[in-house]
Simulated assay, not measured.
Amino acid sequence: MSAHRPARAALLLLAAAVLSVLSGCADAGKLESAGPTPTAIGPTRLWPERQPASIPPLDYGEGETETVRGIEVPGDDVREVNPVDVVRAEQAAHPDALSGPDGMYEETVRQLRDCDTKPKSCPVLKAYHRDLTGDGGAELIIGVSMPKGQLSVRCYLAEKGRLTRIMGTSDAVIGVSLAGRDLIIRAPSNLPGYEYRTAWSWDDHQHAMLPTHDEILRVDKESGETLPSHSHTTTPTATTTPGGRP
């Protein structure tokens, strides 16, 4: 006898009992239809005959990690790490970088060298310590201010006494904020009244922070608040989904 038959018999008995109960309910109050169910509209694939791409688009650094040379983290506590030392170590490892997360202006490099004697002009901003990975420990968030409104944002994870950079990006930046464990970066757009928003989130598989949400949003010029979308048929509300620059 098949092992599934006893289960099927039990299901038949259960179904009969349910029908009996529903029949009693119908006699008492009669079940009424809630109306027709709206037809679900799924995505329509355009140009299905087209061959999918096999080569990824231009990579702008997501998913890249790197151990910071010469920096030790006692007890894997990132609060014991000097942010200026971290940025100096990375600049020393990539002295010729002109773009990307390690790229710096010559002026910024000079200011970095004088952080000890001229702290007010030091480009390394106040460091933040937040749990970005969800492991219960704090990660290190560093910002490096540069000319023309440019800001380099870098995040680091301490593992086995070493410091690993799990995220790095550099761009013209309006502001940076944290929403839960997401790091949200706002950047200006060439379109008047709009801005880019990118949310970077921890990815266990890649073991790095990835740009998981990218959006271009309409904002109020004075308050900087996100304006309602006029594409909705319901009462518009402010968009709260973090996004960012592709």
Rank of each mutant, 00 (worst) to 15 (best):
A138N: 12
Q150G: 11
E139R: 04
D116V: 13
S121A: 15
K126A: 14
L140E: 03
C115G: 08
L140V: 04
Y128N: 08
V124Y: 01
M146S: 11
S121Q: 11
C115H: 08
E139T: 05
S152C: 05
P123C: 02
T117V: 15
C122Q: 06
I141N: 03
K148L: 12
L132M: 09
S152Q: 12
P119D: 02
L132R: 08
G137N: 15
G149Y: 02
A138V: 03
V153C: 01
R130T: 11
K118G: 13
C115P: 12
V124F: 06
K120W: 05
L140N: 06
L125N: 11
R130Q: 09
K120Y: 05
G137P: 00
G134I: 01
G136E: 09
G136R: 04
K120V: 13
L125W: 01
K120C: 00
V124W: 02
V144D: 04
I141D: 03
L125R: 14
V153D: 05
G136Q: 08
T117M: 10
P123G: 07
K126G: 14
Y128T: 12
E139K: 10
K120L: 12
V153T: 15
L132V: 07
D131K: 08
S145D: 10
V124N: 07
S152Y: 00
I141R: 05
S121W: 01
V153P: 06
K120D: 11
D131W: 05
V144L: 10
C115V: 08
K148W: 13
H129E: 14
G149E: 02
R130C: 03
K126C: 10
V124C: 03
I141P: 05
C155D: 09
L151V: 06
K126F: 09
P147W: 04
D116F: 04
R154G: 07
Q150K: 15
A138Y: 00
A127N: 08
S145K: 10
K148Q: 15
R154M: 10
L151C: 04
G143A: 06
L140S: 05
D116A: 14
H129R: 13
S152L: 04
S152R: 14
A138D: 15
C115N: 13
K126M: 10
G137Y: 01
K126W: 02
V144Q: 14
P147H: 04
G134A: 02
A138G: 05
A127R: 11
V144A: 10
D116H: 10
C155R: 05
L157S: 15
M146K: 10
L132P: 09
D135I: 00
C155S: 11
L140T: 10
R130H: 13
G136A: 05
K126Y: 06
S145M: 07
Y156K: 14
E139H: 04
Y156I: 04
V153R: 13
G137F: 03
K120N: 15
Y156T: 02
M146A: 15
L157M: 14
D135C: 04
C122T: 00
A127C: 09
E139A: 03
R154L: 14
S121L: 11
G136S: 08
E139S: 06
I141V: 12
I142G: 06
C115L: 13
D116P: 08
C115S: 11
V144K: 07
